[in-house]
Design a protein around this nucleic acid. Structure first.
Lengths: 233, 233
DNA sequence: GAACAATGTTTGGTGCGTCTAACATCGTCT
DNA sequence: AGACGATGTTAGACGCACCAAACATTGTTC
């Protein structure tokens, strides 16, 4: 059996469950899945029951939603398809990076493994898609993501937030209120180690924000315009 | 409304009805459609009723199957998708011309009009796909070409293959192994109707080949040096 | 700890494409 | 012209994904 034999909704469920754990340690909920997929919670609940029966998801009623080893492998195939398709549409066919998502979302259910491998070869085995996300390998291995905590970076660099660790729900709400989320671009103005303050400037709005050390440790970034910013140490 | 809003079976029906009239003047039958699509006749009959209600097909019960003007336009969009995808897979991604059909058959239901236009642009607006079939334009215009099945031609003529119908991958591989593809020149040595064998000679290599009747029907030719060979009868 | 709000599951029902089997029509052969 | 085989249509049923609404559970708040 392979992921290609699953119907499109099942493929979407697997990909979504995996995606939720790429930047967060908290498993996704039924409600969140339903909202993301534009269906009702009952539909998702039903779908998860079937995936559990197929051994791809482990989910007891009212319990948490986890992928099994096979489910994770299948999910990574879907993520790989999506990201290679996006890269292909941008690099080869001249799409804007903001127009590729919907097209890739449809195509990922239609392409064969052979086609994806050929696309990868044609692109020269890229590491990342146009959004900066890492592309899983054919073997189902997801390369380690290299990102750094904002607290460890040097002043002056332009950065993209790739992850906000969610140790505290309060902190997440705090970031949300400041407009800081994965994908936000910012410039690191200054580190004030003794005051435990990190000063950043959100781009392109140029809004200045001072963050405490706990906050600066929760935000993970990569370099925005150039190569990933090397860690300070 | 556009052809993209139809479900995949409806798109297949339209394309198939159109394809039947590309190389023959006889309209297709319900039974033939069912066999080609791998479904039962009742399914096709039902589908045709719905397409008739939508004004894409004109078909009275037990009557002949014809496309309306809108139906023909939609069908040509699907043919265009299929042929541009095949060309793209061969020219850009290195597929063999005998392996592209199944992949294109799936993708044609998933691609957007924008993607097809970008592919066409990237290919440099080709006239023909790898099988020698003409690619309809974006405006839905399909140039008419006159060619004959090898099985219908007279011995002694020198011919060029312009098209190899892509029904069976096995047959395509067989032709590929013999060096027969669109553009190949050959001389028709003899027709042996009772043995169902057509003897040809590939030019300029002078390699002799005996083809069965199914093979001779799949190969479409025009006269090589002179005018198109008139059909035998 | 009881009540309540938020979240998740189950139930019953719809639309769609498909099938099998029964039925209708067409065309041909005697 | 009538009968019969081939072809096409209709009826009834099934699986599937989905939804709304009823129901169950969880977690939090007073």
């Amino acid at each position: 059996m392979s992921v290609s034999e699953l119907n499109a909704p099942a493929q979407d469920y697997l990909k979504l469950i995996w995606s939720a754990t790429e930047w967060s340690d908290r498993a996704i909920t039924v409600g969140a899945m339903a909202e993301r997929l534009g269906v009702t919670a009952s539909t998702v609940s039903d779908g998860l029951r079937k995936l559990t029966q197929q051994g791809l998801v482990s989910h007891a009623p009212y319990g948490s939603i986890e992928l099994t080893e096979t489910g994770r492998r299948y999910a990574l195939v879907m993520v790989r398809r999506h990201r290679l398709l996006e890269t292909f549409l941008v690099n080869v066919l001249g799409y804007g990076w903001d127009e590729v998502h919907a097209e890739a979302e449809v195509l990922e259910h239609a392409v064969s493994d052979l086609l994806i491998d050929r696309i990868e070869e044609h692109l020269g085995y890229p590491d990342r898609d146009p959004h900066g996300d890492l592309i899983p390998t054919r073997e189902g291995h997801q390369p380690r993501i290299s990102a750094w905590q904002l607290s460890e970076c040097e002043a002056g660099s332009e950065l993209s937030i790739v992850r906000i660790s969610d140790a505290s729900p309060d902190m997440l709400r705090y970031f949300s209120g400041l407009g800081l989320s994965p994908g936000t671009h910012l410039r690191l103005e200054a580190q004030h180690p003794y005051a435990d303050v990190t000063s950043v400037c959100v781009l392109p709005s140029e809004q200045a924000i001072d963050l405490g050390s706990a906050a600066a440790r929760a935000i993970w970034v990569v370099g925005h315009t150039t190569e990933p910013t090397p860690p300070a140490k």
